[in-house]
């Protein structure tokens, strides 16, 4: 069935609505003026140069990268055994545990932020990098878990039986068969977790200190003070970074599909 003209117009408006704010931010970032304006005749890189001279954003970007990498790695490492157990073993409390692991999706990040703020202040680790990473592990765990779980459940149990029948013991089966087969799931789980962590503001606002501020939080506090072309340039760079990451992931998934192929059973 084809879309009628009305549908095409609706779709066009919808796409403009989705893209407009981001396009506008990127445009304003190129303004040659000292104030917010859309460049019409002349594009300038002066605000991007200013970003480079602004150590706050650079440091926050580094923190974000570090926190996202560490938190996603830890989340995936914890998710792998848990996902394997939930996908392949029948034990009491299995369903409940699965729901438990997905719970951070249901809890507003604001509540998590408050909970960690209180928890860390009692433990005396407020504002530390470790605290920040632990918080992010909790937030991204469901995403890592979901992808690894999908890979583990999608795996034909008979493949493992086949390895066993051919004489492979449990450890060999894990090392040679199970783990290689869920690696794509681990990779996509890591990617998804990384993105979630990198974008997280609400919880981080509560638990980041001046030395452990992440990029979105730094941008958020900056915007609360003032909105100027500088923050637009930072946002434009962030959008560019995201688009690049998306392309890489898309490419990477494509390659993975090629490698693993479609399950025909």
């Amino acid at each position: 069935m084809r879309n009628g003209p009305l549908a095409v117009v609706f779709h066009a408006v919808f796409v403009v609505f989705l893209l407009a704010p981001m396009v506008l931010v990127c445009l304003v970032a190129f303004t040659p003026e000292g104030f917010l304006s859309i460049p019409t005749t002349r594009f300038s890189l002066r605000w991007f140069e200013r970003v480079a001279q602004y150590p706050d954003f650079i440091a926050a970007f580094r923190t974000s990268l570090f926190v996202a990498t560490a938190a996603s790695l830890i989340a995936v490492l914890f998710a792998v055994p848990a996902a394997l157990a939930i996908a392949r073993y029948r034990f009491t409390g299995r369903e409940a545990l699965n729901a438990f692991f997905m719970a951070p999706l249901m809890i507003p990040h604001l509540v998590l932020g408050i909970a960690f703020l209180r928890f860390y202040s009692l433990l005396g680790i407020s504002g530390t990098m470790a605290g920040l990473i632990i918080g992010h592990v909790v937030v991204v765990f469901p995403f890592a878990m979901r992808m690894v779980l999908a890979a583990a459940t999608g795996m034909d149990k008979r493949i493992e039986d086949a390895a066993t029948a051919l004489g492979a013991d449990r450890i060999t089966t894990y090392r040679r068969i199970v783990i290689p087969l869920i690696i794509p799931g681990m990779a996509s789980g890591f990617a998804l977790a990384f993105i979630q962590s990198f974008d997280e503001v609400t919880m981080t606002v509560f638990i980041a200190s001046a030395t452990t501020t992440t990029l979105p939080v730094r941008m958020f506090t900056y915007i609360q003070d003032s909105i100027d072309p500088l923050i637009c340039a930072v946002s434009a760079l962030l959008i560019l970074f995201t688009v690049l990451a998306m392309l890489v992931i898309d490419r990477f998934y494509g390659l993975q599909r090629l490698f693993i192929g479609e399950d025909k059973s």
């Binding site: 704010p21 981001m22 974008d199 941008m219 946002s235 995201t242």
Partner: peptide, 11 residues
Amino acid sequence: LVSVVARTLGW
């Protein structure tokens, strides 16, 4: 995938 902060700045 784009940061909520950047998108809200656009708005």
